[in-house]
């Protein structure tokens, strides 16, 4: 493999890892802070992709699809938290799995009613649809580079909110001692609601940005859900920085696994997970007490 091909694969790995990070960071927030296992997380990724297709087709503008899609997902998240998810706090995992599995069925049905079950393609905006010529017969799509930059920006934003803002401090404090935050006058119910809605919006955002380089199809959330859980476990439950590391590791392992060891590439990420958990049972940045 020459250096250029290696570079292209490396970019693919990073881009794949970045999208994985968007989705998994939402899952790790909901899992780590609310203590809720949300199996429907992948369904929101799928829903995001369909929303992107639908809004982009209706308005002819992919950027509107990004903004409106995230906004819709956020509002749906607020509503779902208020009606269903808040009943799950402190309940056992079986109740959480049953309810969120039920949500998958409902979301699939709603998707079928609204968009049907056809496979769709989404075109990226014209100014991002070109390619960069690397050699005479090798080029790299601008949109994939744009995904990397955009996801990095979102990751930076999440990091800033968590480490530098008062709401981030409150979320971290609440993850450590819920009762004490309430005693200090913080209405944790509304914090929960916004954390859940943010998690859902991140899943949908992942589906939206991936739509132009993948096909939009009904089962696309299933594999994403499993990968996101692998990322969360790898990085350490509740750790957004851990999710970033985990997602990049998965992106690299999966991409280069397919290049170098195509016959066993399917099991490599699980092998990676097993090895990391042997080394650090709570994940790379996991806290001991969880």
């Amino acid at each position: 493999m020459d250096l250029i091909t290696f570079g292209v694969q490396l970019l693919n790995a990073i881009q794949y890892g970045m999208v994985l990070f968007l989705v998994a960071s939402g899952l790790t927030l909901v899992f780590g802070i609310l203590g809720v296992i949300n199996l429907a997380h992948g369904a929101f990724y799928m829903l995001g992709a369909y929303l992107a297709y639908w809004i982009a087709a209706a308005t002819g503008n992919f950027l509107i699809a990004v903004v409106a899609g995230v906004a819709i997902a956020f509002v749906v998240g607020l509503l779902l938290e208020n009606v269903f998810i808040r009943r799950l706090y402190g309940r056992d995992h079986l109740a959480q799995v049953l309810l969120s599995f039920g949500l998958i069925l409902v979301i699939d049905e709603v998707r079928e009613m609204l968009f049907g079950k056809d496979v769709h393609a989404v075109t990226p905006p014209a100014w991002l649809s070109g390619s960069i010529q690397l050699t005479t017969n090798l080029s790299y799509p601008v949109y994939r580079l744009a995904i990397c930059v955009f996801c990095l920006a979102v990751a930076g934003l999440i990091f800033l909110v968590i480490t530098r803002t008062k709401i981030g401090m409150i979320v971290r404090a609440g993850a450590e001692n819920r009762e004490m935050t309430r005693v200090l006058g913080i209405n944790y119910d509304s914090v929960n609601r916004y954390v859940f809605a943010t998690g859902i919006a991140l899943a949908a955002l992942g589906g939206i940005v991936i739509a132009p380089i993948s096909t939009v199809f009904p089962g696309m959330g299933d594999s994403m859900l499993i990968l996101s859980f692998v990322v969360v476990v790898l990085g350490g439950i509740g750790s957004v920085a851990g999710a970033a590391i985990g997602a990049l590791l998965i992106g690299l392992t999966d991409t280069f696994g397919k290049v170098f060891f195509p016959s066993v590439s399917g099991i490599l990420i699980y092998l990676l997970m097993a090895l990391v958990l042997l080394w650090r049972p709570n994940g790379i940045l996991g806290r001991r007490e969880i």
């Binding site: 008062k166 401090m169 971290r172 404090a173 450590e176 004490m180 935050t181 913080i186």
Partner: peptide
């Protein structure tokens, strides 16, 4: 809150 600094404990 052990994971928060002194300033963060006060600010939050």
């Amino acid at each position: 809150f052990g994971a928060l600094t002194v300033v963060e404990n006060l600010t939050m």
